[in-house]
Amino acid sequence: MELLLAILAGSLVAAGSYLMMSGKTLPYLFGLTMISNAANLIIFASGRLTFGKPPLVPEHDKTIADVSNALPQALILTAIVIGFGLLVFALTLSYRSYYVLKTIEMDDMREAEPIAEGNS
C-alpha cells in the first residue's frame, strides 16, 4: 500500500512538473496543485497507513491499542486549507495579470525586468 502511494505521489510530481514547464501561468498553477497533492500524500504515508481504525475515540473509551495516527490527518488538513488559500490567490493574480499584461506566457512578461535595459 505504501508502495502504491509512493508511485502515485511520484506520478503526480512528474505530471505536475511537466505542466509547470509549459511556461504559461495557468498550467503552471495546475501543475503546482498536483505537486502539493503529492506532498500531502507524503505526509499521509509518513504517518503509517492503518486500515479501518478511527483517528479519534470518545472520551471514556479505553481501546487505545486500535487507533490510527491522527496527527498526519490534522497536518494534511492544515496543508490543504493553506494550499487552497494560496491557490485561490494565485489564480486571482494570474487572472488579473492576464487582464493587465494581456498574456499568460511567462516569457512575455517583461514589465519588471525589461530586456532592452542592460548597462546604462
Partner: peptide, 17 residues
C-alpha cells in the same frame, strides 16, 4: 469574509473586462 472578498474582487475584474 476571505472567500467572499476574493470572489468579489475576481468578479469585479471580469465585469470591468
Amino acid at each position: 469574509g476571505t472567500v467572499c472578498g476574493i470572489l468579489f474582487a475576481l468578479e469585479d475584474v471580469v465585469s470591468r473586462e
